[in-house]
């Protein structure tokens, strides 16, 4: 071993590691995008008239789950997990639909603002309880999923209510080019207006910091409790947006939680967010949601039983995580 070159080598190794890691990080997203493109081509092949309506249908069906996935991603990045997102969406959905039914447009604007604030509060309650009681997040939010679902049932025990026309218009049709569906624009706008500024602020750093290593973040002077509560509040805001999008796309509010909690966990894992916290972003999960949705659509086109689509989703979820850990185990050995 030639010692004189040793530091150079180690430097090179470090550099290669760095490049490799950033490539790996982007590679995952690129891979997802590539897979999405392949799926779209495949869809076009099996269903030649898949076009504008298909894309629009995809966009509107993706919107609630995509927002839920963004919500889940934020809280998982901060080192937590929220199992009450589905219940929160149901609560927001019934509250908004009940309040908006038969009211004026101006009032409806106030309702929308109100439920978004409500979402922030619900999230902050979850986070606050996890911080104050020091009970693991998974337990607190599991318990709160009962509470929020119960509240939703108190508001309305059956689907009903209404939504403002402008709200419904916001998520139907397209804008400018017919290939650009409005729900996609809404999604991009919401993420760009809320998450990106946060991500770049000190709060964003703190969220990643707390998720990556709580003790190190604490010793760096980050207020861990406050950061976690704020991450949960942001989660609540996105969950509220997801709930609103449910109301907007269906025109009514449904008090029974959909499968959004568990699907959001699946989506963030596929989207490259580490369940250990501190790593990942919101873009990957959004792409993952689209992939999951297209697979479902394709299986309908192929006349495959939708139940098998559920099986496939489960298998994809397990498969991706397994491959991820095999890669990690290999790397640790090599």
């Amino acid at each position: 071993m030639s010692a004189a070159t040793a530091p150079v080598d180690s430097g090179r190794v470090a550099l290669a590691g760095l490049l490799g890691s950033s490539a790996r990080r982007n590679a995952w997203i690129l891979g997802l995008l590539g897979f999405l493109a392949l799926l779209l081509v495949f869809t076009k092949l099996i269903q030649p008239n898949y076009g504008v309506p298909g894309i629009q249908g995809l966009a509107i069906s993706v919107l609630p789950l995509a927002l839920a996935a963004v919500a889940q991603a934020i809280v998982v990045i901060s080192g937590g997990i929220d199992l009450s997102i589905g219940s929160m969406m149901a609560l927001i959905s019934v509250v908004s639909a009940t309040l908006m039914a038969g009211q004026s447009e101006q009032f409806d604007v106030a309702v929308v603002v109100g439920v978004l604030v409500l979402g922030l509060l619900l999230g902050a309650v979850n986070g606050g309880l996890a911080v104050v009681t020091r009970v693991p997040d998974i337990v607190v939010t599991l318990a709160m999923s009962f509470v929020w679902a119960g509240c939703a049932l108190l508001v309305a025990d059956s689907p009903g209510g209404g939504a403002a026309q402008w709200l419904k218009d916001l998520v139907t049709g397209s804008i400018g080019n017919e290939w650009i569906p409005k729900p996609a624009v809404v999604l991009v706008a919401v993420v760009a207006l809320i998450w990106i500024p946060v991500r770049r602020s000190r709060l964003g750093l703190s969220i990643y910091g707390v998720g990556s290593d709580r003790l190190a973040a604490f010793r760096s002077g980050v207020s861990v409790g406050r950061t976690r509560i704020l991450a949960y509040a942001l989660m609540g805001l996105f969950a509220a947006l997801a709930g609103l999008s449910l109301t907007a796309s269906t025109g009514i509010g449904t008090p029974v939680p959909g499968p959004y909690t568990l699907m959001s966990v699946a989506a963030i894992v596929l989207g490259g967010v580490s369940l250990a916290g501190g790593r990942g972003g919101v873009f990957g999960p959004i792409v993952a949601v689209m992939i999951l949705q297209i697979i479902r659509t394709d299986m309908t086109f192929l006349d495959v039983d939708t139940n098998l689509a559920t099986v496939l989703q489960g298998l994809i979820l397990i498969g991706v995580v397994m491959i991820g850990s095999i890669v990690q185990i290999r790397r640790a050995r090599g």
Binding site: A266, N307, M322
Partner: peptide, 26 residues
């Protein structure tokens, strides 16, 4: 999945429940 491949139990059993549910429905 959990023991050999070190998949997070939450994810593993969640995925498993989707698979079982889908198969039973089918």
């Amino acid at each position: 999945g959990v023991g050999v491949f070190r998949v997070h139990p939450l994810i593993m059993t969640l995925g498993m429940s989707l698979v079982v549910l889908g198969l039973v429905n089918f």
